[in-house]
Amino acid sequence: MARTKNIVLERRAVVARILAGRGDALVVTGLGSTTWDTAAAGDTTKNLYLWGGMGAAAMCGLGLALAQPGRRVLVVTGDGEMLMGLGSLASIAVQKPANLAVCVIDNERYGETGMQRTATSFGVDLPGMARAAGFAETAMVRTEKQLAAIAPRLFAAAGPLFVAIKVTANPVPMVLPPRDGPWILRRFRHDLLGPRAAD
């Protein structure tokens, strides 16, 4: 099967566009390119960057969303990272967190390892899987117009939401956020919990 044609959106612009409307939302990133994309859009204490644990991002978002039901939680991850944690679509759908959205930046490639094709390049439909699992709302985004329509819903619509956004595989500059795990986590907790973070 041929790779999906007519991909026009660029990943950095897509992530910047989405995060511009985040308000006080908490963001979890999946290892690799989406961590760099999120850092490029502006480092903040409300970002929980993952640099490892491939397949962890969506479940990390679930634990956070359940612990903070009054806050919006957005997971920004890649197609390869999401494919490694497909079971989490079922686990999230069972819990039905209304405040959680998962956004897959889908370049149909394993970007950190040599741009090998992922299953989505052969037609595997991630939003279709999320829909079948029972997510409240799912979408596949290919155009600026569709992006403009879905971006505010990531922070407002009743979740769980799952959105995959097809982006080009064009190279982008490396932008690295902090990489020390304890520091990233404790900075995030201190901002969110205040003095209780030291418990």
Binding site: G63, L64, G87, S88, V94, L185
Partner: peptide, 26 residues
């Protein structure tokens, strides 16, 4: 207590990172 059914145990390692980031013990 929120009891969370997992499809594989590794999901729980990530779940509890998110939980603790959000101020809950698991």
């Amino acid at each position: 207590i929120r009891a969370i059914l997992l499809t594989t145990e590794e999901e729980g390692v990530a779940l509890l990172l998110g939980a603790w980031a959000g101020g809950q013990r698991g």
